[in-house]
């Protein structure tokens, strides 16, 4: 089994070879099965719309063995504490309609398959919607409850719960028909070099995945694992919060979580994972 590059190995190689022959730490060869039963596709041919990559990989393949292990069993996955809390929320009535999620949707298992197709065109809204928008739409308009903060804890936990029942299913977001315009806009954002460092998503996650940037082993920046529990901040992190962090790190003026630019970007980035398994809630460093 190939090991992902770690600091110690790295320094040893550097010292021995005088830096000359440092190979790129490609995704490792590990395979992901969760709870001994959910087989995850972490590597697959890139979808036809992708021009510059032949193979797509889950971010899990770029993490250390230690970080990977957290995600292999729900008892070890710290994200599951949040998911359990959301499972309780699912049945608790909120808002002036006196309804809970389960009043309309019954069991959480009824949500199997949903995570895999979002963001998605909403006929009623006449726009592309993320799962977060859909959840807030239910809260406001069907429950008469307060909206949750887009990247807040309640929201991330509920998205985590809804993702968890789709684990193992292939991501399959639609990019044609009415969604196409939004997808094109997301693609443009993906390839724009923002900020004073003039870096695009593609610079890091398409041109340089597998390489180290300072202490970070760059993945393809896929979102099939979201929400992610990060060991670094010990909470569930939503897609738009991650986008915001990456844009901020180019010394750029970021976009607003939940806003039209990040919705478009999410649709585009999700489509780059079409074929990989839904992994959320995953564990990353």
């Amino acid at each position: 089994m190939k090991q992902p590059i770690k600091l110690k190995g790295c320094i040893a190689i550097l010292a021995a070879a005088g830096f000359a022959a440092v190979a790129h730490a490609d995704p490792d060869e590990d395979q992901l099965t969760v709870n001994g039963e959910i087989e995850m596709v972490t590597e697959v041919d890139a979808p036809a719309h992708m021009e510059n990559l032949d193979t797509i990989y889950s971010g899990w393949r770029f993490r250390s063995d230690e970080t990977q292990a957290f995600q292999m069993d729900d008892f070890d996955n710290p994200a599951m504490i949040f998911v359990e809390a959301a499972a309780e929320t699912w049945d608790i009535a909120d808002g002036f309609e006196g309804k809970s999620c389960s009043s309309c949707h019954n069991d959480i298992e009824s949500m199997a398959g949903v995570r895999a197709v979002y963001p998605k065109w909403s006929e009623t809204a006449g726009e592309v919607r993320t799962l977060e928008h859909q959840i807030n739409d239910c809260r406001e308009n069907r429950m008469g409850a307060e909206k949750w903060k887009y990247t807040g804890g309640d929201m991330a936990a509920m998205v985590g719960l809804i993702s968890s029942v789709s684990r193992g299913l292939p991501i399959n977001v639609a990019i044609d028909g009415p969604a196409q315009e939004t997808w094109e806009k997301g693609k443009e954002i993906y390839y724009t070099r923002y900020g004073q460092l003039e870096l695009s998503c593609a610079n890091c996650h398409e041109d340089s995945y597998g390489m180290m940037i300072r202490a970070d082993h760059l993945s393809q920046g896929q979102i099939n694992g979201f929400p992610t529990y990060r060991l670094k901040n010990t909470k569930l992190n939503s897609v738009h919060a991650r986008f915001k962090g990456c844009v901020r790190d180019t010394r750029a003026h970021t976009f607003k979580p939940g806003g039209p630019e990040f919705i478009a970007l999410e649709l585009y980035v999700a489509s780059r994972a079409n074929g990989l398994s839904v992994e959320g809630p995953s564990v990353r460093n």
């Binding site: 900020g195 790190d249 010394r251 003026h253």
Partner: peptide, 14 residues
């Protein structure tokens, strides 16, 4: 010539 130049690493506009 920057696109959406930020105020260092704050994420805010410059």
């Amino acid at each position: 010539g920057f696109v959406r130049l930020g105020d260092a690493y704050t994420g805010k506009a410059h």
